[in-house]
Amino acid sequence: MSDLQLELEILRYDPEQDQEPRFQTYSVPCQEEWVVLDAINYVKDHIDSTLSYRWSCHMAVCGSCGMMIDGEPKLACKAFVRDYVNKTVRIEPLANFPIERDLVSVLDDFMNKLRRVKPYLIRKEEKPLSEGEYRQTPAELNKYKQYTLCINCLCCYAACPQYALIPEFIGPAALTMAHRYNQDSRDQGRAQREEETASHEGVWDCAFADACSLVCPKHVDPASALQQMKITSTVDWYLEHLGMGGKKS
């Protein structure tokens, strides 16, 4: 039944037992079509039920199973075992986040930062529902559509050298979400968001390493969002300080 054998070297850490993380190796008989998540599930079901990790959809949309696979942040459900044959694959929780237990990282930091950038539509005046939808042409939709595709898997934070060095940096996914709303023709909240996003912990902590975009499993390209925000916030700053009040409210 099994087509190939995979050696998994999985980071284990139980704060009640271990002073620091250690690695444990499992040998898993895999089918050719499997993803790394299938192999980890095999470990959980057949070898070691004490292994902890997050997963759900198995189709790269819920964002639960972001982890370091062979040193790169990836979704375990979209990393194919056939790409790792004949070698020992090291599996670790996402880099740059504290480890709660085994492959489970602590995500509080991101959740707090996401709230700070106000990732929701802000209007000066709400249109009554009875007047129907806001009009938005396909071109206006395309302007921000790519940035709506973020699944919050946080692979980008694990790849970002700036976030590694400056934990206060709001980071790629959260800032991209701010940009997504800034670019939405229905939104009027850019000025409010810039209080956070144009601050020192915002886009200016980004060094455009582009690592976020390289690892993003959904091709969101957060780096592009952040560079565009740098330009916009610079223009907004000059307009404001030249007294032209050019800010989009």
Partner: peptide, 13 residues
Amino acid sequence: VTHKAMPIQRGEE
């Protein structure tokens, strides 16, 4: 990488 910072949209694309 300039195209990332300065994308140009023409029509939908």
